[in-house]
């Protein structure tokens, strides 16, 4: 399936992806959070759309479904905003903060995908750090988190 990948050699922590997400899903908090590794690297946390999503298993309302495309989507009308998925997510990409009884959950911009467009965060990224690619394409390109790590501190690794 196609996923959003982050090339940390290009991410400048400008949070444009987060703003684009906010405006593409107007009723929610942005589904892209930011994590800080000390003060030397600040990177977007984006849903990985797991093969076996724990958020899906944890949802008492069956409000999270895995689509044919592989995207893990929250169904607006079923979600009660209980936050179980946020607790269950092993990567912490679902914000527990609830607004209007719905949690914020990346759906890979399903509405844009129907129009044949890439997710908003990917299109907005000013440095090309976010890419939307097939798993096997990424493996060939070796562009993913940590792929080009030399085992050094991220600050120095960029040198």
């Amino acid at each position: 399936m196609k996923r959003v990948f982050v090339n940390i050699d290009r991410c400048i922590a400008c949070r444009t992806c987060s703003a684009a997400c906010h405006y593409s899903h107007a009723e929610q908090r942005p589904t892209i959070g930011y994590g800080e590794l000390r003060e030397d690297a600040r990177l977007p946390f984006i849903c990985r759309h797991c093969e076996e999503p724990t958020c899906l298993a944890a949802c008492p309302q069956n409000a999270i479904k895995k689509l044919d495309s592989g995207a893990v989507k929250r169904m607006n009308m079923l979600c009660t905003g209980c936050g179980s998925c946020a607790v269950a997510c092993p990567f912490g990409v679902i914000e527990p903060q609830v607004r209007s009884y719905i949690i914020s959950k990346c759906d890979l911009c399903a509405a844009r995908a129907e129009e044949g467009k890439q997710p908003a965060c990917v299109m907005a990224c000013p440095t090309g750090a976010l890419t939307f690619e097939e798993d096997d394409e990424i493996a060939v390109k070796s562009v993913m988190i940590g792929s080009s790590m030399t085992g050094r501190h991220p600050f120095f690794r960029r040198v």
Binding site: C14, R15, T16, S18, A19, A20, Y23, K117, Q118, A120, V122, M123, A124, C125, P126, T127, G128, A129, L130, T131, F132
Partner: peptide
């Protein structure tokens, strides 16, 4: 907002 670039990173727009 909309993004009119042909590929990611070409949109040239910040938050």
């Amino acid at each position: 907002p909309e993004f009119v670039s042909a590929r990611p990173g070409d949109a040239r727009v910040c938050a």
